[in-house]
């Protein structure tokens, strides 16, 4: 299952894009409660949102973003059937992508 959940909603001719990404977003200063060892930093660094293959958002995120990050953006226009693609890359090189069709 993909780590990204996408919801879109059309409001007054605009399209709200909301996303929820499952990711630990560790900043590297937390300690493991059992072993007391530092948990290595693990967070999403790059976020890309595409609308019909046009890149509309490129984001650099840091560990100040909460665990399981939520982001929302508003697209001017957007039609039912348009494709939204969201992808992320984290500091360990993991990546994921998810497609969504606007209802």
């Amino acid at each position: 299952m993909s780590s990204i959940k996408i919801r879109t909603k059309r409001i007054d001719g605009k399209t709200q894009i909301r996303m929820l990404i499952a990711h630990p977003m560790e900043h590297g200063r937390n300690r493991d409660s059992k072993t007391n060892a530092l948990i290595p930093a693990h967070f999403i660094q790059e976020l890309t949102v595409e609308h019909n293959k046009n890149v509309i958002i490129t984001g650099n995120t840091g560990a100040n973003i909460s665990k399981d990050p939520y982001f929302a953006f508003t697209l001017k226009g957007g039609n039912p059937g348009d494709k939204i693609t969201i992808s992320w890359v984290d500091n360990l090189g993991n990546e994921d992508a998810q497609e969504h069709i606007i209802n």
């Binding site: 605009k14 509309i56 958002i57 982001f71 929302a72 697209l75 001017k76």
Partner: peptide, 22 residues
């Protein structure tokens, strides 16, 4: 580390961004 996020938005987007911060 103060920077939480920086988003580059294309002209197709409204200047509105939501997120959750630590």
């Amino acid at each position: 580390i103060p920077l939480a996020a920086k988003f580059e938005l294309s002209p197709d987007l409204e200047p509105v961004v939501s997120a959750r911060l630590k």
